[in-house]
Structures are given as C-alpha cells and as structure tokens.
Design a protein around this nucleic acid. Structure first.
Length: 804
RNA sequence: GGGCGAUUAGCUCAGUGGUAGAGCGCUUCGUUCACAUCGAAGAUGUCGGGAGUUCAAAUCUCUCAUCGCCCACCA
C-alpha cells in the first residue's frame, strides 16, 4: 500500500545539480535490479521543500534509467525539465509539472501553492487522473518562490533544505567536496555534501545563458514516415554523395531519425500555416482563404448539431449563419492566453440578433488566429531546390533545372540541410533534388577549430584577397580541397600561389617579348615539325586529360596541382627555355613554328587555368586581339592524338642528359659560367640521334662549349650518363676529384639499395607467380635500367681511381 | 555515451596494394636579355606504436596511443 515514509523517518538520498527542480518532481526512480531499494519501491516519499504543512509525496518507482553504480542509485524525476527524466516519466506515467516560464524564472501563474499541492497529492496517491493540458496548468512553485529567477530559487531551496536538516551531510575533510572546499583538518566538522564535480552544461549559442529544458507545445514532422526514399535513393545510387565516407554520416542520421521539431518562437521566418478557432480547433491550410473554408465547414457542421454554442462556450443555441474572419496580429497578441507559448483567440465570437423578436437566432462571426510560430529555418531551406525555381508554379525553370546536378556543401550540414532536402523533395514533389552531393573540405583555424563567426576565429577571405589577390586565394582553396579532409589555411601556401600568378604573368611577358601577342589568335595548334613542338603539344594533351579526369571526379586539388606542375614545371622551366635557342636562331621557319606554338600553348594554359584563376587569366587573354572573352572560350578536347611517342622519348632523353650534366657540374663545383666540352664515350643510335637533333638545347641550357666523340673517357673527367649513353666532361683542371668520387659513390649507394629491393622481388618465385605480368615486366625493366646505370657509374669510379 | 575522421619531410598537406611526393622553409651556387614574388643544385622521412592478411602494406584488418569534428548529454 501507499505507506508514507515520513511516519517511519526513513530517508532516500538523491543528488541534483538543480535543486529547485525538486519542486516539480513526480517520482523517485531506482533501477529494478537495485536490491537496496527493493523494499521501498511503490511507497511514497516526501519532497523536502515547500511549506511544511503541505509537503508533497511522490512515489518511488523502478526504471532502467538509474545506474545503481552511480551516486546513490536513486534519481529524482522531473519530467518537465530534463530530457532523461522526461523519458522516464513518459514510461512510468509520472506527471510532468512545469515549474519555469520562458524567461527562466519560477512560475508565477495559476492557483496558490496549497491548491496545486493538494491536487498533486491526489494524483500521487492515485486518487485522481491528470490530462496533459491540465497538468501544465498546475503550478507547484511555493508562493514564496514564485517569480524568482531559477538561480535565486535554487539558493533558497538549498537553504531551506539545509536549515531543516534534510541535506546529506558529510565531514569537512571529505574529498568529494573538492580541493577548495575540503578542509583536511575538518574531520569533525559537519557540512552539507556539495560534490565538486565537472558537469557538462548546455549554453545558449547566442545568449550565453544556461539552457533549461522545459515542456512546450511544438509542431513536429514525423520524419520516420518520409525518410524512406531519401535513404533508398542514396543506397541505390540515384543520388551520389562524395566523398563516400560522408554517406555513413547521412545513413547514420537518417536511419535513426527522430521527430523533427519544426516550430520556432521567432518573429522572422515562414509563419506556420495553422489557424486556431476560439475552441482551439486547428485549421492547417495553404493560405488563409482555404483555412476559412475549412473553418466554415467545421463550424457549420457543428451548427447543425447545435453543438456550436457548446464548442464556443456561448449560450446561443442556433445560428442562421457562421462567417469566419481573421483576427489581426495585434488582436491575437491582445486576446491570446499563453499556454506553453501557444496563443488562442479568446473573445472571438461576436453575435448579433437577427430577425428581431424571437431571440433564438443570430448571425455569428468566428475569428481565427494564426499560429504565431515560424518554421525552422531548415524546413524552409529544405524546399530550396524547388523553391528557387518557382514551385509551386510549374515554371520552365523547374522543368529545366530540377533535379539539379550537383549540390556543393559542407559536411556539417549534411543532416541539417542535405538530408532535409532529400526528405522534403521526395515528400513534396516525389523526386530526388539533385544527382550528386559534393561535400567540400572545411577551412579550420590553426588549432583545427571550425571557423565560425560567433567564435571569432575567422580568417577573413577579403583580408587574404587584399594581401595575396583573389586568384591566389581561390587557387589555394582549390589545391587544398582534397575530399574527405579539412584544411588549415596556411598563408605561406597562398603566397606560393600568388607567386604562381606572377610566374604566369612573366611567361606572358616573355611571349610578348618574342612577338607572340602580335600573332593572330589561333584556335588550333600549328602543324608540328619540331620535336619540341610535338613534345609540348603532347604534354599539354596529357595535362588537359588529367585536369578533366580530376574535375570529372570532383578532385579539384588534383586538377589544380596538375596545372601548377605543368605551367611552372613543364611549360616555364622546360619549354620556355627550349624555345630560346630556336627563336634566337637563324632558321625562320623553325622560329615561326615555335612562336606560333608558344602562343597557342600559352593560350591553352590560360583556358585551363581560367576556372582556378579567373582574373589574371582573363587579363592576360585580353592583351591580345581575341574573338571572344576567355570566360567564353571553348574548353579543349584534344587528347592522345596529340602525343608523339618518338618526340616524347627524344625530348625526355635530352632533358635527362641536361639534368645530369647540370647536377654533375654543380656537385663538383664547376663554375656556372664555365662552358665545358661534352664528349660522347658510348651511345646507342637513339641517343646519338637525340643529341644531334638537340645540340642547340643542350649547348645553351647545360652550358656546353664543344661536342666531341672519344673512344674512352679521359682520366679525371666528369662522368655523365643518359639512358643508352655515357658521356665524359673533361674538366681536369676544374674538377674536384674528391667531390666527384663522393658524388659517384653516393649514386652507387643509392643504386645498390634500389637494386637490392628489385632483385629481392624478382628472385622471389612467389612474386613472379602472383604479381600481374605488367608489374613483373616493369620491375624487370627497372632492374635492367638500374643495372646499366650501376655499371656506368662503377666504370667512371674506376676511371677516377686510375687517374688519382 | 553514439557516430565520423586524423596521425606521412621542420611546417601545411597530397598519395585507397607495386616500395613515398608537392609547396613553403632549410643548405650551396647564380649579374645566361620572361621572372630575385626568380633560376640551378642539394639535404631531410623505421609513413604514430604493435600485431595480422598478402609475393608485396603509407594504403586492407585488428589493437593501443594521441588529436580533432558532429550529435546527445550524466542525476
């Protein structure tokens, strides 16, 4: 039975960080497995606050929520002011008494405390049932605490409990009191147990005020009912989410979807399309006219049953007509009664007698008041894909652009926005809103925190643009936009890409200097005869393909980096240098071809770079007479047909020779200004052909004075190799023998290591069995090349020893 | 507590099975007429630790450590 604990003076201790909420407790819960409390489950206990003569009693119930290991194992249940308690209260049918108002103060409405407490007592003893709405009208705040801010009320409640001797006490040296409060000497002092403990507390994002959970009436979307197609279409590929890993977030959220609260108590936004009649009847309609129609139908039907008067609380029994009209906003506010934020029109029936004397007939006007709440911003935004295209009208734009192709967004709003758009488009127009969702990287600050306006840790893009230029900032973001990662913006890197812009500018100056701006605009490349022409066209084709593939796959960083490498590393560092001997030479036809090629290839650089650096490229494009702006230029489509394998091989061989000569020269400290002789010691036909076709290049770039042929390397010469050839650079008086030996030995050391790995693999029979043929072949080719290199350098080293 | 991810050169970051790269920084050299916001050359990594799968692992699996993010939030 409902034996009252007070009579036997037993206590159950509970802990709370918000003592004032005890006033609204509906129960104390313990875990059903907790044997300590088994004997008292079902009994009533007294809440130790409030006027003594009117202490409320609440039941001790069981619920899986309390953790027997945590604290006392008993939890007070305030359904109206705590998320977990709410669930417990719902499960146990425990009344949820609301204690605070929307300002975070203790309630100051309703009947006096004694009345409310008596009612609650009756409920606790099972003598009375409470509806949800009625429960909310009960104010269990004692009269002396009404209207106080919750923090003030908290203080008073603690004082009252303590002064009455009902606080859990401990000794002064209890470690749980925390370092500042505990007194190591205070073993005999009795103090209230106020544990020093860090807890998580939600603060309002903008108000910076502690948030108190509270029961209110709100509009919800039963999201579970509309989530199906949104999940299926991503699962079956109708909608693609990139990078793939973000699908996990998407599914995780949608598959555990909760009812979506869509009403907000703000004055901006789309107002909820619901109108209330004086009886609280709701009319949800697209617009007011339709709501009126619905209301008229509703109230006329009541009229036929003579039930209207009852519904409206009027004494008039019969009506000739019912008309419905709007209560304007001011009236709504004036007449509304606040019940959990919802406002109903009160005195909204006006009637007047018609027909004179028999008194029973009247015309009546029923006023409707619109729900003052607005929709969650994500509810409105969720309609963006169709809303922006003129829906609900069947516009041409809607037909043409819906569903859209790609949605670009940040991962942090995958469920706020993307998932909502998916659900809502399916729910409203029964179609997916877009084909692909590209989730871009998020820029973070130096510490890895998300940049946010409210945190103030924002690098203002405009400042960066001022300092480095818009193109540099844009290019940096593109080059760092690898999928699935966040990026910390580095100003050094932006500076690097600013320099890239300068580089491009200078390449244009060079072209201008060599007369390329004077040439007419050409859409097609010149017919190539020179190896360097064929080669650069091929390199350009490879780059264009790489860029397109990257863009196709949303790998913007790959596209940007491919262009950076091509423009700086290939076009400027190599090709531009290659054109110098030709343009300065005396073969006019070759110079013309080269000039035209440079002009065309540079144009291609501008076209390909334009999406990444629109300003500088458009500017450079405009320095020459053009049929149209760069922004309107056709994106190129050339590909492998522009690659000439022969020229490719020849020029790459030449590049390698030049690099090797330069490297050898610098490492043994041959002065950069010294022109040296390059002696061919051994070379296959291809090497000889490549060298003789490109002597001018090698001469100029590697700073060679003479080319000769020698049967064997002279003693003490620099050894230089290229695939299929060995050269000697006789610089006896310039050479630092020790340096040369060091250089060669280092090369050998590196080669030995590489050879070890390659041989190890090829000698493993399992590798030959299991690895794909092409991998085996490639490994064999590498081994052969390294072995050749090794042999050549060994010979050179031996030669050097002989000389010493 | 649930979910996701990261850890690679001094720094910022690429690299989803074939033996590791870029930019910046660093060292040395440079008055070659596009460019010093540049050029040439060079150094630097037991790819966080451990275990496993595989002929082969930065890459796949497990585990540990550290860091970060999103969501929920301890009476």
């Amino acid at each position: 039975g409902n034996e009252v604990l007070r009579e036997t003076r037993d206590y159950i201790s509970i802990a709370t960080t918000r003592p004032e909420t005890m006033l609204g407790d509906g129960a104390v819960a313990v875990n059903p497995r907790d044997e300590r409390y088994a004997p008292i489950v079902g009994k009533l206990c007294e809440i130790p606050v409030g006027p003594k003569e009117h202490r409320r009693l609440i039941p001790i119930i069981t619920d899986p929520y309390p953790d027997p290991e945590f604290g006392s194992g008993a939890v007070k249940i305030t359904g109206a002011h705590d998320f977990n308690d709410y669930e417990v209260a719902k499960r146990g049918g425990i009344p949820m008494y609301r204690l605070m108002d929307t300002r975070g103060a203790m309630r100051d409405d309703g009947a006096p405390y004694t009345e409310a407490a008596d009612l609650a007592m009756a409920v606790a003893k099972g003598e009375r049932e409470l509806g949800e709405a009625e429960c909310d009208t009960i104010n269990l705040v004692p009269d002396d605490l009404r209207g106080l801010d919750r923090f003030e009320a908290r203080k008073r409640v603690v004082e009252q409990i303590t002064s009455e001797g009902l606080a859990v006490m401990t000794t002064g040296d209890d470690e749980r009191l925390g370092k500042s409060a505990a007194d190591p000497e205070g073993g005999d002092k009795r103090v209230p147990l106020v544990e020093a403990k860090k807890i998580m507390q939600p603060f309002g994002d903008r108000s910076k005020v502690v948030i108190e959970p509270m029961l209110t009436d709100q509009w919800f979307v039963d999201a579970e009912k509309i989530v199906g197609p949104a999940i299926d279409s991503v699962r079956d590929g109708t909608v693609q989410i990139l990078p793939e890993q973000d699908k996990k977030v998407y599914f995780n959220w949608l598959e555990n979807i909760e009812p979506w609260c869509i009403s907000r108590q703000l004055w901006w936004g789309h107002q909820i399309p619901v109108w209330y009649g004086p009886d609280g009847e709701r009319f949800c309609a697209e617009n007011f006219e339709l709501a009126v129609e619905a209301a008229e139908e509703h109230y006329l039907a009541l009229n036929e049953d003579s039930a209207l008067g009852e519904a409206l609380g009027e004494s008039i029994l019969q009506y000739d007509s019912v008309s419905v009209s709007a209560l304007d906003e001011a009236d709504t506010m004036a007449v509304g009664t606040e019940t959990s934020g919802r406002k109903f029109p009160q005195s909204s029936v006006s009637s007047f007698m018609s027909g004179g004397d028999d008194g029973g007939y009247a015309d009546i006007t029923v006023y409707l008041a619109r729900d003052p709440d607005v929709l969650d911003t994500w509810f409105s935004s969720g309609l963006w894909p169709i809303g922006t295209l003129g829906w609900p009208e069947e516009t041409d734009e809607l037909k043409k652009y819906f569903p859209t192709s790609v949605l670009v967004t940040g991962f942090d709003i995958i469920f706020f926005w993307v998932a909502r758009m998916m659900m809502m488009q399916y729910a409203v127009v029964e179609k997916h809103p877009f084909d692909t969702v590209y989730v871009h990287a998020l820029v973070r600050d130096e510490k890895g925190k998300k940049m946010s306006k409210s945190l103030g840790n924002v690098l203002d893009p405009l400042d960066l643009v001022d300092e480095y230029g818009a193109d540099a900032v844009r290019f940096t973001l593109a080059s760092m936009a690898a999928m699935g990662r966040d990026l910390k913006l580095s100003t050094q890197r932006i500076a690097g890409y600013r320099n890239f812009g300068t580089k491009l500018w200078n390449a244009a100056s060079y072209g201008d200097f060599k007369g390329t701006f004077a040439l007419p605009h050409a859409d097609a490349p010149p017919a190539p005869t020179l190896a360097i022409t064929k080669w650069i066209l091929g390199e350009l084709a490879k780059t264009r393909q790489a860029v397109d593939e990257a863009l196709e796959a949303f790998r913007f960083n790959d596209a940007a980096n491919a262009l950076y490498a091509f423009v700086w590393g290939t076009f400027c560092d190599r090709y531009l240098e290659f054109t110098k001997p030709v343009l300065d030479g005396d073969d006019a036809a070759q110079a013309d071809e080269t000039r035209a090629t440079y002009a065309w290839a540079f144009d291609q650089c501008l076209i390909l770079l334009h999406p990444f650096m629109p300003f500088i490229t458009e500017e450079l494009w405009g320095m020459k007479q053009r049929p149209k702006m760069l922004a309107h230029a056709d994106w190129p489509t050339y590909g492998t047909e522009m690659i000439d394998a022969q020229a490719d091989q020849e020029i790459n061989w030449t590049i390698q020779l030049i690099d090797n000569i330069r490297s050898a020269r610098q490492q043994v400290n041959v002065p950069a200004s010294a022109k040296v002789t390059l002696a061919t010691v051994a070379a296959d036909d291809a090497s000889r052909a490549a060298l003789s076709a490109n002597t001018a290049l090698v001469e100029r770039i590697a700073r060679i004075g003479d080319f000769t042929d020698l049967a064997e390397a002279p003693k003490g010469a620099l050894a230089v190799t290229a695939p299929g050839a060995t050269f000697a650079v006789p610089v006896a008086d310039l050479i630092d023998v020790a340096a040369e030996r060091g250089r060669l030995e280092k090369s050998l050391g590196k080669l030995d290591k590489e050879l070890g790995g390659l041989r190890g693999r090829l000698n493993n029979p399992k590798f030959r069995e299991s690895a794909p043929d092409e991998v085996v072949e490639e490994t064999e080719a590498q081994l052969a090349a390294k072995e050749e290199e090794h042999a050549k350098i060994s010979a050179a080293l031996a030669n050097l020893r002989d000389a010493a």
